[in-house]
Simulated scan of single mutants.
Amino acid sequence: MSHSPILSICIPAYNRPLWFHRALESIVIGNKEFESSVEIVITDDSSTQECEEIMRQVCCQWSGQCIYEHHPVRLGMVENWNRAISLTTGQYIVVLHDDDFLLKDAITNILATIKAVNHPVLLFGVEVVDEQERVMKRQIFKENQWLSPRDALISLLSNSSFVRFPAIVVARSAFAEMGMFRTEWREPCDLDMWIRLFSRYGVYCLQDVTTAYRVHDQALTMGVFNEQTINLLLGLFAEVKQLNILSSEEIVSCKALFLYQFILAGAWRQLKRGRLQEFRRVMELMDISEVKNLPCPKKWWMLNSIFRVLSNGLRI
């Protein structure tokens, strides 16, 4: 290409060819007018060649830049994200996981926002869908607004679902300045990245809804509700304290809101699938000393009480 694209859309793929197909088509189909402005970057950690075959089939309809790389030896989740980002040439980057997809007019809205809003971190609305793409909830902002580093951190750290990964658009220059996802933080490494970006730039929140975030049993996040993850999250809150942006009282309040929501959400995922022993195991995370010593937020008091009764009943 004679010039750099405005937007790079990365798909780090891993053994979900049908959903990968859906994600890729959501970029290609109906967006021909943006071929010179958008590049597609696919880094494939899959154990088969199915995604490559799908890429060739779908991207034959795309005359814009398309980069594909298959890894004979799996990189792993975090390094696969980083590899995709490292291959981009666009001014801004979206990481679209292979189980998520863009909504109609997403690229139109993202490109228009990049042109209109001179900010390195953009956060759009998202539809949370199930495996059949039925909308479970819409997570949207009431108005377009910039949040300062302090306000952005409070929003991020008091709501474990504040950032849905495919809804965040980041300038490549911001990744260059702040660095890539850090593997030492394992599953919460995305939260570590948002903390670093928000503490430096704040975040510009947009009303437009651009992506669908799919909730399903195959998601790698289904396995994060354990003591190791809680300890990593506590470590991230300790890092936030060192930034000297939030007061000690604000950090305690955010920590309680975040961890109660995180644990209760994990317990609910198990409960609605009828996995009662897994539900009880997740609820036992509330007994970790640093969590137990946090005040239960009013927002989560009723649900926590109900889940506690159910969990205790399973002990009998």
Rank of each mutant, 00 (worst) to 15 (best):
R200K: 15
E239Y: 12
R164T: 05
P149M: 05
S160Q: 14
L236H: 09
V163E: 08
V209H: 01
L147Y: 13
D217I: 08
I251R: 01
C189T: 14
L232Q: 14
L243E: 10
R196W: 05
F181V: 01
S199I: 09
W146P: 00
I230C: 14
E250I: 02
Q218F: 10
A256M: 03
M180W: 01
G235L: 07
A212Y: 01
M180I: 03
C254Y: 04
K241N: 09
A167M: 08
F258A: 02
R182K: 15
A219R: 10
L257S: 13
W146F: 13
L153V: 05
A212N: 06
F237I: 07
N226L: 06
Y201L: 04
E184N: 10
R150Q: 14
S161M: 13
T229S: 14
F258Q: 07
V169C: 12
A174V: 01
L197M: 10
V169F: 03
M193Y: 04
A265N: 14
G179W: 04
E227N: 11
M178F: 04
L243N: 05
S199Y: 09
S247N: 06
S173E: 15
A167D: 03
Y201P: 02
L153M: 04
L246P: 00
G235S: 11
S247F: 05
V163A: 05
R196T: 11
M178W: 00
V169I: 15
Q218T: 12
P149L: 07
S160T: 09
F181E: 04
S161H: 12
E227W: 00
L259G: 04
A219K: 11
L234M: 09
Q207E: 15
V215K: 06
F162I: 07
S199K: 11
V224L: 02
E249W: 00
M180R: 11
S247P: 03
G179M: 06
I230G: 06
S161G: 09
T221Y: 14
F162T: 06
V209A: 02
A174S: 13
R200F: 09
D190N: 09
A174Q: 11
V240F: 03
D151H: 13
C189V: 08
L259K: 02
A256P: 07
S161W: 12
R172D: 03
E250R: 02
V224M: 12
V203F: 10
V169S: 03
R186G: 00
T211I: 03
L153E: 03
C254M: 04
T211F: 00
P149I: 08
N231S: 07
A212T: 01
Q207C: 13
M222L: 04
A265S: 15
K241W: 03
D151Y: 09
A238P: 00
Q242A: 11
F165N: 14
W185V: 03
N226F: 08
F181D: 02
A238K: 14
L153G: 06
H216K: 04
V252H: 03
Q228L: 12
D151P: 00
Q207M: 13
Q228T: 12
S161E: 12
F258S: 04
I195T: 07
E177T: 11
I168A: 13
A171F: 07
Y204V: 01
A256T: 05
M180G: 02
V209R: 06
D192A: 13
W194P: 00
N226D: 15
V169A: 05
I195L: 07
V224E: 11
A267I: 08
N231H: 13
M178Q: 14
G235Y: 05
I245D: 01
L246S: 04
R200T: 15
N159E: 11
